[in-house]
Amino acid sequence: MKRRGIVVSRKKSKTYAYSYEQYEEQGKGPKNVVEDILADKEFPDLTELVIGCWGNPWEENCQEVINGIVANAGRFSHIEKLFLGDMNFEECEVSWIMQGDYSTLWAAMPQLKELTIKGSTDLTLGDICHEGLESLTIICGGLPRSVMKSIQNAKLPNLKKLLLYVGIEDYGFDGNESTVKELLEKSDFPNLDYLGIVDSEIQDELTEVVLGSKYMEQIRVLDLSLGTLTDKGGRLLLEKIGNWPNIKKLDIHYHYLSDEIKDKLEKLPIEVDTSEGNEEDAYDGEIYRYAMLTE
């Protein structure tokens, strides 16, 4: 599917995006996105809105898109799912995507149930307060502490799914396992059912943090995928996950587990995804493992 202006509709979801050629030749950019959405005859029938590449996302952020949605909140009142930044690496590397400030979005879209954000450069969430949001996903190469702090203090009483790409220092992660531990300790999501702390180069350490969190008593899906999980983390899972019969699925796809530990995890009496095993690299006596989304 080529992204040239307004693209193919799929049920009640539609993607709006500009190519770099449209930016260069027609001047299309973030200032035009909301205008074009509102002019689309199909838009009133949508429940899911996906914003892809806005022409030059490595130079201009998406603040005008966010501001446009907020300024026209009444006309976006039927949108229940929003994805801002859905673009592949050919359009823009994830660490280059210039995001924006979502502080005003929470009050402007009380009907919103799912929010997905891709990219963390200049990302600000502000004071999060939303009665209806059920799913929050942030896909990035590195999650800043400031963003984690906003999530830690968020008032999201109906949040069911939290999926955070932790990433690496080179692409914006400026915390450590203690930062994630504090988020899980101080946040209050009484209806959380799916917890994903993924895509980290300290996945073993984060596995220990997550297994020690209060959310283990309530979630049904534990997602520790896309990182550098080794046998150290795998053994922790084997030792402890049986303590929580509420866990029905464990997702650890993309990992660095040995066949022995992988086989043992697959025999757990729950659904376990151990696909995409990786082999570590060795160079000059050093061992190298890489999280999935590190470019």
Rank of each mutant, 00 (worst) to 15 (best):
K118T: 15
T121F: 06
P110M: 12
D122N: 14
G132A: 13
G119T: 05
T116H: 09
L143H: 08
C140Y: 01
S120P: 03
K118C: 11
Q111G: 12
Q111S: 13
G142M: 02
L112E: 05
P144S: 06
C129K: 14
C140L: 03
K113C: 09
E114F: 08
K149C: 03
P110K: 11
L123T: 01
L125T: 01
H130Q: 14
E131C: 01
I128A: 07
E131N: 14
K118S: 14
I138E: 04
S146V: 08
I117G: 00
S120C: 15
I138K: 04
S120F: 04
T124A: 15
V147H: 06
C129I: 09
K149Y: 11
D122K: 14
G141Y: 07
T137W: 00
K118F: 10
I117R: 02
L115K: 05
L123D: 00
P110R: 12
L112S: 06
Q111D: 09
G126D: 11
E134K: 13
E134C: 08
S120N: 12
S135V: 13
D122V: 06
L143Y: 07
L133N: 00
E131A: 15
Q111K: 12
L112H: 04
P110E: 12
P144V: 06
C140G: 05
G126A: 12
H130L: 09
I128C: 09
P110S: 13
M109P: 01
L136R: 04
L115A: 05
S135G: 09
M109N: 02
M109K: 07
E134T: 11
G126N: 10
I117C: 00
G141H: 06
L115D: 00
R145N: 15
M109W: 06
T121M: 11
S135C: 14
L115C: 09
G142Y: 00
L123P: 01
S120V: 04
T116F: 03
H130K: 07
K113F: 08
T137E: 10
D122P: 01
I117M: 01
M109F: 08
L143P: 01
L133E: 08
